[in-house]
Amino acid sequence: MNRAILKFTAMSCFLDRIKVVYVIFMGLVIPVGMKWETLSRGAAESQTFEMFTGSVGVALVLTGLCLGAAGTSTSRSAYSGECLPLIFSRPLTRAEYVVTKWCAIALVCGAITALQNILVAFVGMCFGEVWTVQIIGAQVLERLLDAGILSAAFLATMLARNRILQVFAMAAFYVWLVGQTLPPVSVAGPNLPGLDGVQVAGGQMFFLASHRIGDFLLPGIHVYEAMNALNFPWIELVCYVSTLLVYLFAAVAMTTRRDFFYGTD
């Protein structure tokens, strides 16, 4: 773990004005504001709200934090605009860089989204909702875990600098997003005859597939359910840890193999 990378990556998240504005709005103002508005109008919580306060919210905050690859000092080539990280001329291994970067981004992102969940709970309590320490604790831990796996996947994609892989990763991210935002139940309806029925069945299949692919690519752990389950969900945990390790190893391997220079894509 490199202290300099850890410190300056975290600092960049809070001192880069554009990032700060984006993260505050996406991570805090919008979800907390939605909660407030929903409760003050006595309306039911929307799916968008669920999205902002869950793992999709973590992904949105992460996007802001990762823009500009927080904390790297680079040298821009005069010819093609590719960057050469000045920091790698310092005594720093690429594995150390990747792991430290992951830690810093995951911690900052996890902390922001955990804070968001706490604020949402606080707003809820102000309006008479019942929130236990166990529920809040479970949500905080879940956001940290979400931040951990999403940061690893983001880093692997950003550091690989392989166009095919990046296109694939973007597509996979959208599939995951669909699975997260539109559960198959949303398109469930009566068994319609003819073309309408085919359309509904097709939609259900698409969203179910998105959900499954999303779970495979970015598995999460439902902490509250795990806390209250009769048997600890070892399979969920093993899936989560193994996928996280795959992303981190991939990020280290790709960064180690990569040429850090222009014209080498």
Binding site: S73, T74, R76, S89
Partner: peptide
């Protein structure tokens, strides 16, 4: 080893 890059690209916030 010390290195001076041709066109450094600095973090604006630093």
């Amino acid at each position: 080893t010390g290195y001076v890059p041709e066109r450094p690209d600095f973090e604006q916030w630093m």
